[in-house]
Design a protein around this nucleic acid. Structure first.
Lengths: 230, 230
DNA sequence: GCTGATGCACTAATGCATTAGCGTCCCGAA
DNA sequence: TTCGGGACGCTAATGCATTAGTGCATCAGC
C-alpha cells in the first residue's frame, strides 16, 4: 500500500490528476456506463477532463493492470470484456482469504472485535431498504473482519481485483430475499466465530461466498457481447 | 493479468523499455543490490539505461504499486524499507490460497496432475546441489499446483506481492537441511493429495509455509536500517 | 558579544504539457 | 487474394511548472 507521507501529499492527493482519472474511469467501467468493448480515446478523455495525455496514460495503465481495460500498443485502448475465468479466480482468492480469516478470528478474536462486528451488523440490518447504504455496510462488515485478522491490505487487494465480478454483479437481476440472505449469513458467521467454532464459521463463510456467482451462465447468454469468448 | 494480444506485441514486449526497466530494477531491489533507502535518481537511471524519463517513470510507478519503492513527490524516490507487516500479510495470503488449493486438488485432481507434480519433484530432488535450479523448481512445484487448481493468475499475484518477503529471504542465513526439508514437505503434500486426505494435505501445506519467516526478529535486529520502523 | 530562532532564497525532483516518432490496422487497387 | 499506402493513436522524448527540503543570513533575546 502506498502510504501518504507528508501533510501536503494528503492534501494534494485529491488534486493530482491521474488518480482522479483512474477512480472516475473505474467507477464508470464497473457501472457499465462504459460498457465492455467501448473505445477509450485519449483525445476524447483529454477534452473531457481537461488534462494532457500523461495523466490519462497513467490512469489507463493502472486500469490495464487491474484488467479493466486492454491496451493494444500503437493501435487502441478499449474497455475489456468480462473475463469469467478471471472472475472465478478472484472469487477463489476471496474465499481462500476469508476462510483463513474465519479460522484466525475463531481462534483469537477478542470481545471488542465481536462488539464492533455486531455493531456493523445492527446498522446493516437497519439499512435493509437503503440499497447504497446496504452495500456499503456489506463491504464494511467484511473489511472489519480483514482488519481484525490483521490483514487490512488484503481487503484492498481483493477489492482491486474485483472489477470483473463487480461488473457481473451490475448485470445481476435483483433477487428477492438476497439482502436478507446476506444478513442471515453474516449473522451465522458471527455467531460461529463467537462460539469459537472454526468449522461452522468456515462453513458459513463458504456458503456466503458461494452464492454470488450463480447467474453467470444466464448472464453470459443474455449479454454475449459483454463476455470474453475464451 | 494483462495478456498479450498480437504476435508483434509478444515480440515487442521485450523491446519496450519500461517493462525491461521494471524487471531489472525489481531484481536488483530484491537482491538487495539496491538496498532499502537507496535513492533512485531519474537522471542517473536515464544515464544508466539510455532512455528518457517516461519509461523510467512508468517503471518506478509499477514498483511503487508493489511497495518496493516509495515516491515522495517533488522530493525523492527511494527503495522502500522492508515492511514486516506487509510481508506477514503476503504470507497470510499465500497460505490461504494454498490451503484452498490443497482442498481443491485433494478432491478433484486427476492422475495427469499427480504425474506432473511427481515429475517436478523428481527433478527437484536431483537439483539438490544446484541452488538456482533448486529455487526454480521449488517455485515450479507451487506454480503447477496453482495451475492444476485452475488459478494460475493467483500465482502471479502472490509472486508480485512477495517483494518484501523475497528481500527477507535474501537476508536469511543459509540453514542446514533447509533444502531437504522443502523436498520432504513437497513430498508430504503430494502424498496426502494423492491419498485424497484433505486434512493431511492442509496440515502439510500449513507446516511448509510456516517455517519461512522464523528468523525475522533476528534479521530485524541484524539489519535495523533495512526494516521499516512502525 | 554570543546563541538560537525565524524567514527567505536556492536546489532538486516529481507531475504534467507538448511534441516527435513509429508501429498497427484498414482499405483500396492490382 | 495479396500487397501497399495512409490514417490513427500509442510510446517515448523534451521542456516547463510546482513543490519539498536545505542552508544561510538576519534578527531578537540573553
Amino acid at each position: 500500500m502506498p502510504q501518504l507521507r507528508t501533510r501536503s501529499e494528503q492534501l494534494n492527493r485529491h488534486l493530482r490528476a491521474a488518480p482522479q482519472l483512474f477512480e472516475r474511469l473505474r467507477e464508470r467501467i464497473i457501472a457499465l456506463d462504459l460498457p465492455p468493448g467501448a473505445p477509450l480515446s485519449r483525445v476524447e478523455l483529454m477534452a473531457e477532463f481537461g488534462t494532457s495525455v500523461t495523466p490519462i496514460r497513467d490512469a489507463l495503465q493502472r486500469l490495464a493492470e487491474e484488467g479493466l481495460v486492454e491496451i493494444y500498443p500503437q493501435h487502441a485502448t478499449v474497455v475489456s470484456r468480462i473475463d469469467l475465468a478471471q472472475a472465478a479466480q478472484t472469487q477463489f482468492l476471496r474465499r481462500s482469504i476469508e476462510l483463513e480469516i474465519a479460522a484466525t478470528l475463531a481462534r483469537a478474536a477478542d470481545h471488542a472485535t465481536f462488539d464492533a462486528l455486531r455493531a456493523i451488523l445492527a446498522r446493516h440490518r437497519a439499512a435493509l431498504n437503503d440499497l447504497t447504504e446496504f452495500k456499503r455496510l456489506d463491504m464494511r462488515f467484511h473489511q472489519a473482519m480483514y482488519e481484525a485478522a490483521g490483514v487490512p491490505d488484503l481487503w484492498a487487494l481483493v477489492r482491486s481485483r474485483s472489477g470483473h465480478i463487480d461488473r457481473l454483479r451490475a448485470l445481476h437481476l435483483p433477487i428477492a430475499g438476497k439482502a436478507k440472505a446476506i444478513l442471515r449469513d453474516h449473522g451465522r458467521i458471527l455467531d460461529a466465530l463467537e462460539a469459537r467454532d472454526t468449522a461452522a464459521a468456515q462453513r458459513a463463510v463458504h456458503e456466503h461466498l458461494s452464492g454470488t456467482l450463480t447467474q453467470v451462465a444466464a448472464i453470459a447468454k443474455r449479454h454475449p457481447e459483454y463476455v470474453r469468448q475464451s
